[in-house]
């Protein structure tokens, strides 16, 4: 098996497929490993490799799939046959997930700054705008993809296409159009996904207006709770770059559940 697991890992990573590697770091067989992928692996159904006991392997594969879904590395303790609440061995589960996605709707000045900051944060960036003259790769060279379409149609496409992973808790949707014609259908479509963050730009009065239209369009109170609008943390941000930082900071705070002051929860001026 020498050399095989690493090259299998390299193959999966190069192909951009999500993969987890569980390594026993403390116990009877330190260094033993299982590679767990979302896609086909040489030894289905479990993973590639073994920790030396089939019951243990089964439990570790299950937990690794959970880690893959959350995109999180974890250390776990097990009994020698995978029992919970035992400490016979320690397993480190490392997740190699494709980068989280940030969809930015609206090709405006703020978009370029957010695409840059989002890129630094490790997001794969898609800029989407229905207006052909605005949504160009020349204007957004830092984006991984520039799509000319209505944002809600892009979302419907992502959710419907079985070859594209549906949006999840690690992904973010930032709606910068602040034109109700585009952003009401975009927000409604975003609500129907499991995306972890939805933010929409605009003044407090824009947001009041938009909220009324969203309710008209069928949004529930639960849906509206998911919407961060006005977008960003209350940093007094002004320039496109500062606003981009405040949006990314709000995404971090949303993921960690920390109590950072959000513009949505305040009532004062935005800047």
């Amino acid at each position: 098996m020498a050399g095989q697991l690493f090259s299998q890992l390299a193959t999966e990573l190069r192909a951009g497929r999500p993969v987890a590697m569980a390594t026993e770091v403390d116990g009877p067989r330190p260094g033993s490993k299982i590679l767990i992928g979302a896609s086909a692996m040489p030894t289905q159904p479990g993973g590639y490799g073994s920790l030396g006991n089939s019951d243990l392997d089964r439990v570790v594969v299950r937990d690794s799939i959970g880690c893959l879904e959350l995109g999180r590395n974890e250390i776990r303790h097990y009994g020698s046959r995978g029992e919970a609440n035992q400490q016979a061995l320690t397993v480190f589960i490392e997740v190699f997930a494709p980068p989280p996605r940030m969809l930015i709707f609206g090709a405006v000045d703020f978009t370029a700054a957010l695409a840059r900051v989002g890129s630094i944060m490790g997001y794969s960036i898609t800029v989407c705008d229905a207006r052909e003259s605005f949504a160009t790769t020349e204007r957004f060279p830092m984006a991984d993809r520039v799509v000319i379409d209505w944002p809600h149609r892009l979302l419907e496409h992502i959710e419907a296409d079985s070859r594209i992973q549906s949006l999840g808790v690690r992904d973010a949707i930032c709606i910068l159009t602040h034109d109700p014609k585009f952003d009401v259908p975009a927000v409604i479509a975003a609500f129907s996904t499991d995306v972890g963050y939805i933010g929409a730009m605009g003044s407090r009065s824009t947001q009041e207006n938009r909220q009324a239209k969203l309710i008209e369009a069928g949004a529930t109170q639960e849906d509206l709770q998911r919407l961060h609008a006005p977008i960003g943390l209350d940093l007094g941000a002004r320039t496109p770059e500062e606003v981009a930082v405040s949006i990314c900071a709000e995404i971090i705070a949303t993921h960690t559940g920390r109590n950072a002051p959000k513009l949505r929860d305040g009532s004062g001026p935005l800047h």
Binding site: G3, Q4, L5, F6, T23, V25, P30, G31, K33, F92
Partner: peptide, 9 residues
Amino acid sequence: HLFLEPLDW
């Protein structure tokens, strides 16, 4: 806590 191992896998 670090885990150190040879890359022989």
